[in-house]
Amino acid sequence: MSLIRNNPVAMYLQIADRLRREIVEGTYEPSGRLPSESQIMGRFDVSRVTVRLALEQLDKDGLIERRKGKGTFVAGKQVRHQIDTLRSFHESLKVQGFDATMRIVELTAIETPSALVSLFGAKCALLERLHMVDDEPIALGRSLLPAVMSELDLETAEQRPTYALLKDKAGADIASAEIAIGARAVPPRISSLIGATANTVLLVLERTSYFDHGACAEWSEFFIRPERYKFVLGNRMSI
Rank of each mutant, 00 (worst) to 15 (best):
Q96F: 08
D153A: 08
H213D: 12
P113S: 04
D61W: 01
L116Y: 09
T108M: 00
S191L: 01
E155A: 11
I181F: 04
H131L: 13
A217R: 00
M1P: 10
R21G: 15
I179V: 11
E158F: 00
M237K: 14
R87T: 15
S47N: 00
E65M: 02
K94F: 06
I224N: 07
E106Q: 13
S192P: 09
P161I: 00
V24H: 04
K70E: 09
G97K: 06
R21K: 13
S118D: 12
L126E: 10
S2I: 08
A122G: 07
W219Q: 09
C124M: 00
T101A: 10
L193K: 09
D17F: 12
A125Y: 03
P187T: 06
D168S: 12
F98A: 04
E158L: 03
R67C: 03
Q78H: 02
G141H: 06
V9L: 10
R184I: 14
L13F: 08
S238W: 13
N199F: 15
S31M: 14
A183N: 09
A147M: 06
D84N: 12
D168H: 11
M11C: 07
R18I: 10
Q96V: 07
S192H: 11
K68I: 08
I110T: 02
E227T: 11
I40V: 13
E178P: 04
L34S: 00
V148E: 11
M1Q: 14
L55A: 05
D212H: 10
K70N: 06
A16T: 03
E56W: 01
N235W: 04
T85E: 11
R80M: 12
Q57I: 08
A215W: 15
N7Q: 10
D212G: 09
E128K: 13
Y163D: 15
A164K: 04
V9D: 06
L202G: 01
L144Q: 03
L165I: 00
V24L: 08
G26W: 06
D61Q: 07
E227N: 15
A198M: 09
S220P: 08
R184H: 15
A100S: 07
P146N: 02
L165H: 07
L126Y: 01
V186R: 01
V46R: 02
T208L: 08
M1R: 15
I181K: 00
T85F: 15
A180D: 11
G182S: 11
L13Y: 11
P30F: 12
G71H: 05
L34P: 02
G234Y: 01
L19V: 00
E178R: 00
D153I: 08
I174Q: 05
K169I: 12
E106G: 07
L130M: 10
L119T: 01
L58Q: 01
L165P: 06
S88A: 11
G171V: 04
